[in-house]
């Protein structure tokens, strides 16, 4: 479902802006990243929701695995099931937006480096909004501000290839750092929020 949503977002933007290929190529990295973040958010609410609703979370909490490990595994599953397919789809959608072929490797690399942070931060939002009414909307409101750095560095590690050579490695390395930091820290925040939801 996230893939279909991603496709729709990317299709609808040229329809709104007009088919100017130069303009599209220039804004393609930004659109691809924004679309990816929105598509990832769409499925993020499900990371813990079904386990919370059917009582699985209760039983998991009495299990021998520490809760942060469980939370981390759930976020990792979201990355594998949603993050990676979105990253694979992005270059195809890049063709629609006239993204130059030379930018494809850096796009794939940047998205691969940045999407773990997307999934793990989404996990914090998902655990905080468990069981609430209209939790999807709230989730977006909580998480999108936290995505600002990912978006900025994600786009800057692709843009130089569109508008001339520049330092690509710096934003890419920062993306990696963001992902590593959220892989380490987010499970603890998510586990604390899960414990809170169990009460």
């Amino acid at each position: 479902m996230a893939l279909g949503f991603y496709l729709i977002v990317i299709v609808i933007i040229p329809l709104g802006l007009g088919p100017n290929l130069n303009l599209l190529a220039r804004i393609a990295p930004g659109i691809l990243w924004v679309g990816l973040l929105l598509a990832a958010l769409l499925s993020a609410g499900r990371i813990f929701e079904s386990d919370y609703e059917d009582g699985t979370l209760d039983v998991i909490a009495t299990g021998p695995l520490p809760l942060p490990v469980v939370a981390g595994a759930k976020c990792l599953a979201h990355w594998v099931a949603t993050g990676i397919p979105l990253v694979l789809l992005a270059p195809v959608l890049g063709l629609l937006l006239n993204l130059p072929l030379s930018a494809f490797p850096s796009l794939a690399l940047a998205m691969l480096a940045g999407t773990p942070a997307v999934s793990f931060i989404a996990g914090i939002g998902a655990s905080l909004t468990l069981g609430l009414r209209r939790s999807g909307l709230l989730l977006a409101l909580l998480v999108v501000p936290l995505y600002v750095p990912i978006l900025i560095f994600g786009v800057s590690s692709v843009t130089p290839y569109v508008s001339g050579p520049n330092s690509l490695w710096q934003p890419l390395l920062i993306l990696c750092a963001l992902s590593l930091a959220s892989i380490v820290l987010a499970p603890f925040a998510a586990a604390a929020a899960l414990r809170n939801a169990l009460r």
């Binding site: 009582g55 699985t56 209760d58 909490a61």
Partner: peptide, 15 residues
């Protein structure tokens, strides 16, 4: 907690 089996109102069954 790890000595306990908890069976509450919810069945924890994955459909």
């Amino acid at each position: 907690a790890e000595l306990c089996h908890y069976v509450g109102h919810l069945n924890a069954a994955k459909t």
